[in-house]
Amino acid sequence: MSKRGIILNIQRFTIHDGPGLRTELFLKGCPLKCEWCGNPESWKTYRQTGIYTTKCISCNKCGSCREVCPDRSMLNFTDGKLTSIDRSKCTNCLLCYDACPSDAIKQWGKTMSVQECMKEIRKDKGYYDRSGGGVTISGGEPLLQSDFVLEVFKACKDEGIQTCLESSFYAEWKDIEKILSYTDIIISDIKHMDTEIHKKHTGVHNAKILENLKKLIKEERELILRIPVIPNINDDMENIKATADFIINELDGRVRTLQLLSFMRLGEEKYYSLGMPYKMKDVNVDRESFQEHVKTLAEYFNSRGIHCTVGTKEKE
């Protein structure tokens, strides 16, 4: 019987997470809760509903969600429009999503089998062959569904399709190790070198992540490393120098590319659709000056002998 996973999204023709043209599977569930995350709908390991009030026709003209909801008291309306759901009562049955005619209720996540995923993947095999691309599995945190990732990667390798795993590597080594034989490229990131600051802004300490990165280097894995550059959180020179020291001394400098990803305000509407606060709401940066700052950081890493670019490209 084919294993099943909770898929957030499947994107075709992606070019940012691995070489060539790729099909990227985003899996649901993540143990980190990064304040700057643009995809809060990926955090939970189960399907969820997102509420978009501006699309609601109003319960006076429609009312479909109220008709099908097992407990109408969980639906909150303002001026006749659905504004939120009491998540403590919601069972995520998704009957309201099925009934809504106006896309005011969105479904985050669906269950798919390995073969259903492979059917989508095979559509683009010709593009992989011509561009040097393949399949990337990301998240959320894909290692929360490590058995599913393993089966998808096995199926890909059986058909000669290149594989790439994008992970925070906040996971048990046994869940990483079993996938390595079927993984061609690894993408990970370092959010902060100070473990307490890391926990403050992501919800977890970084010791497990750093140890797993060191083990991956010993396994001689192809590693692309990233730093999400977040203003006033990890972009100070003390942290940047500590990160460079770690890459050189603990990873033996064996990083294919270090990519600096400049902070952008993404996913704000998604937070509100889930009834969550957006913690980066008050963070505003001058884009031009901030990009110059990020370029300066890249120059520093390159001066230390670490191949570094701004953005997801591997070459300047």
Rank of each mutant, 00 (worst) to 15 (best):
M1W: 11
M1L: 14
I15P: 02
R22P: 11
E24I: 08
L27R: 05
L32Q: 12
L32R: 10
C34P: 05
C37Q: 04
G50M: 01
I51R: 00
T54R: 07
G63S: 13
V68A: 09
K81Q: 05
C90G: 06
L95C: 10
I105L: 00
Q107W: 00
T111W: 13
S113W: 07
R122A: 12
Y127V: 06
Y127F: 11
Q145T: 12
F148E: 04
F148M: 11
F153Y: 10
I161H: 02
W173R: 14
L180V: 12
Y182A: 10
D184F: 10
I186E: 03
S188Y: 05
I190N: 10
E196Y: 15
K199R: 14
K199G: 08
V204M: 13
H205C: 13
L210P: 01
K215D: 14
L216A: 13
L216H: 13
K218S: 15
R221S: 14
E222Y: 15
R226T: 04
D235F: 14
D235N: 15
A242S: 14
T243K: 03
D245C: 03
F246G: 01
L251P: 07
T257F: 12
E268P: 03
E269H: 06
Y272G: 06
L274N: 04
G275Y: 04
V285Q: 02
D286F: 11
E288V: 13
E292F: 10
K295N: 11
L297C: 07
I306K: 03
K313H: 09
